[in-house]
């Protein structure tokens, strides 16, 4: 596809959303909607501009993104080596699979009450929730990825003289990478929702807090603006960061996803 083709496809994608944007103020006026029920587009824009001018948007966004980044990076750093270790032996991985599945089912939101008790309200509790959401799913997927590497490939590497570390670096990690990336993507999906829930419950800064506190004052324009920011941020993280990496690992190596 050339440049014109890509621009055309982009325009086609955006057209329905543009229609919604045009319809919005028309419907608000036509039905004379109370701004305490649903805001007009101009009010949302004004609320957005104001939050940019007074810096509060960036403070909330920064807090949310910092929690996600710290929780996710920590979780990946711990989960991947652990998953590889657990996946190396078929017996061990079969034994641990039910445990990891149980905990990955609990990932995220279910940890909020106990996290807030253990760490108190704030950065620690929320980061812990995110860590949990990502950790178990990534560990499980890493284990799955390592244990589905065909024995023949491992044998081939061993017969070519691969030692323990070369095997890890050259065979196990790359082989499990597509699964790891898929795990990170799924885990982050849960973590992002967990983040919003945790910020509603357990903090005084962050995007979740921003929209929840606006509710107290019936400031729907702030809520809707916050929702758009939350959705747009997730689309950016997912489409620009996670999906390309996933596509690159899975498609370039011709590997099929197994989870």
């Amino acid at each position: 596809m050339g440049w014109t083709g890509r621009i055309l496809a982009g325009a086609k994608f955006l057209a329905p959303l543009a229609v919604l944007l045009v319809l919005w103020p028309i419907l608000i006026r036509a039905f004379n909607v109370n701004p305490q029920i649903f805001p007009d587009i101009t009010a949302v824009a004004r609320a957005g501009l104001e939050s940019i001018r007074d810096g509060s948007l960036f403070a909330h966004m920064g807090a949310s993104l910092a929690r996600v980044a710290v929780g996710t990076v920590l979780a990946i750093l711990v989960a991947v080596p652990l998953g590889v270790l657990m996946g190396v032996s078929p017996g061990v991985s079969a034994f641990l699979t039910p445990l990891l599945r149980f905990f990955s089912v609990l990932a995220g939101i279910a940890w909020i009450p106990i996290a807030t008790l253990w760490f108190g309200y704030g950065f620690g509790a929320i980061t812990f929730v995110i860590f949990n959401a990502v950790f178990f799913i990534v560990a499980y997927n890493t284990l799955l990825g390592v244990s589905t590497i065909p024995m023949q490939v491992r044998n081939a590497a061993a017969s070519l003289g691969a030692g323990r570390w070369t095997m890890l670096a050259e065979v196990l990690l790359p082989g499990a990478l597509p699964n790891i990336v898929t795990g990170v993507r799924t885990g982050l999906g849960f973590a992002w929702r967990g983040l919003i829930a945790a910020e509603i419950i357990a903090t005084n800064i962050g995007l979740g807090y921003m929209i929840f506190v606006a509710r107290d004052f019936y400031r729907t324009e702030v809520i809707v603006f916050g929702m758009i920011v939350i959705g747009a941020l997730w689309l950016l993280i997912d489409r620009l960061l996670l999906a390309p990496v996933e596509r690159a690992t899975i498609e370039r190596w011709g590997m099929v996803r197994s989870a």
Partner: peptide
């Protein structure tokens, strides 16, 4: 419908709670 579906999916469920 596809573009709006992707967009509204991105606004996670819980972000709807306040409104």
């Amino acid at each position: 419908l596809w573009p709006p579906l992707l967009f509204f999916q991105a606004i996670g469920d819980i972000a709807w709670l306040p409104i």
